[in-house]
């Protein structure tokens, strides 16, 4: 547990530092995520060392978000004044993203299958 926590926090720290030096363009946690992914692929980090910690963190992610959502108290006025446009934008763009992503992936898979069949015929 301690070793896993150490590794995760170390990557978070490195990510935060890089984020600071590149002017906070990308959140430090995202940089840390990419770095640990790369380190795992390059076998610098042993996945078994971190698994217990990462499983706990990813499975219980929902609760970590609760304190941030309470911040709605602070911006309640701005939200209630714009509730319709906010809800409309959220829902319509969510549908849009689902459709676009699914469409591209489905089309690509069909194309690949078609090519495979063509190659077999040759």
């Amino acid at each position: 547990m301690i070793r896993g926590s150490f590794i995760i926090l170390l990557f978070l720290f490195i990510g935060e530092s890089i984020s600071y030096f590149i002017g906070n363009i990308i959140p430090g946690s995202v940089i840390g995520m990419v770095l640990i992914f790369v380190s795992l692929t390059l076998k610098i980090v042993n996945p078994e060392h971190v698994r217990a910690v990462t499983e706990f963190l990813t499975k219980n992610m929902t609760i970590f978000f609760v304190p941030a959502s309470i911040g709605i108290m602070k911006s309640w006025n701005i939200i209630s004044a714009n509730w319709f446009s906010l809800t409309f934008i959220c829902i319509s763009t969510t549908i849009l993203i689902i459709m676009i992503v699914a469409f591209i992936q489905e089309k690509a898979e069909k194309l690949r299958k078609k090519k495979e069949i063509e190659n077999q015929n040759i």
């Binding site: 946690s29 995520m33 640990i36 795992l40 910690v53 963190l57 990813t58 970590f64």
Partner: peptide
Amino acid sequence: MLGPAVVSLGVLLY
């Protein structure tokens, strides 16, 4: 805990 949770997603990805 949000920060470490994001880093953990890298392991999930792997």
